[in-house]
Design a protein around this nucleic acid. Structure first.
Lengths: 198, 198
DNA sequence: CAAATGACAGATATTGATTTTTGTCATTTT
DNA sequence: AAAATGACAAAAATCAATATCTGTCATTTG
């Protein structure tokens, strides 16, 4: 049973469990090895460093977060409604995770903070998803944009306060939903019409 | 000469100097007292705690930052151009301060981080300034908004990434200006037309 | 011989003893 | 008597000794 061969996948599973229990500060490579019943040296056969292991855990987490968003991006309904649903899901799930289990959220945020490159790629994936929706919207005549990728970045940045964990302390504000709606309505109108230079 | 009476103003001046030199972590009340040539007990006659002193320094700093913005808000030219100038100034000066003297900027950000209530009031002042510009814009027929205060908050939040010090690490991105322009153009169009519900 | 081990050196973290700082207040100064 | 002082207790920071952890690699295991 426990005699399965040691794979990166099994190590990641164990590492994630230990990290969730103890947090990144208190988790050692030896702890992870102990859970797996191997020596810590064996882990270095699969991950070049503790940081690389943490990066891989962060990557798994971000990839999981991305799945339901990608589903919306790949639908083919009306783009405007999909964009609203996509942004709402992104912001709402971030907030829900943060408020439901603050310690676990802090753990993942800490891992992500160390894994800058992984986060950068994740963000780029998210923006590509927005870009797809905007392209669909332009095709449908719902949006006007001569540069969907630039528009996607603008939408992502404009909603930063609502999905970036740096703003987690603001998410318990009872007016947060009204604040999001205000920004969403700005985006909505901004995307519908072609931008006019000032 | 140095025999002037001890006022809150003189204490703040000295405290700011010491804080700028050594940073909040290394600055003690005794240090500030030494600069003024008084005992540290005297400082507690004017400020109830070290935190209160730090708060007051942060307040001074924020008030100074606010002056040129208030000037734009109180002009009476075309609102759209003023809003653009106001937002650009806010974001540009934040970034300039951060990049020109990162340590000093970090000091002020640290002070502000401890002085949450002071920052809250400052932000409310800024949003009132935006509200004034939007009200002017509505009167001029340049903007459509049935709730200028809510619109002001939306504009402030949509530009968070460009003025909130939590994002200081992103400000050295060479594409930051293009990113800001993208968000500005979303805001611009969003404010011109009355929002249409999704 | 591929996979795993565990002893090891250098780096990092923990601990608890010591020093410094904060904030108070009875006393002194002007 | 209003302002300032400085001795003091409690809280917080520092520091150095100690322990733990990371990452390597020569050796062992299956």
């Amino acid at each position: 049973m426990t005699e399965e061969i040691l794979t990166p996948e099994r190590i990641l599973e164990a590492a994630e469990g230990v990290l969730r229990r103890f947090g990144p500060a208190k988790t050692t490579v030896v702890d992870v090895a102990r859970v797996l019943g191997v020596s810590h040296g064996s882990i270095y056969r699969h991950f070049s460093s503790k940081a690389a292991l943490h990066d891989a855990v962060a990557e798994r987490w971000l990839a999981r977060k991305s799945v339901p968003l990608a589903a919306i991006a790949n639908e083919d309904g009306p783009a405007l409604e999909r964009l609203q649903r996509w942004l709402t899901l992104l912001c709402f799930t971030s907030r829900k995770n943060a408020l439901d289990d603050p310690e676990l959220f802090a753990t993942y945020v800490e891992l992500a903070g160390e894994a800058r490159e992984v986060v950068k790629v994740h963000v780029e994936h998210l923006v590509v998803q927005i870009t797809h929706i905007i392209i669909d919207g332009v095709a449908q005549g719902a949006f006007a944009s001569d540069d969907p990728l630039a528009s996607a970045w603008a939408v992502f940045y404009a909603t930063t306060r609502f999905h970036n964990p740096a703003h987690v302390t603001e998410w318990s504000d009872p007016d947060i939903n009204a604040a999001f709606d205000g920004v969403w309505s700005l985006i909505l109108v901004g995307l519908r019409s072609r931008g006019i230079s000032s």
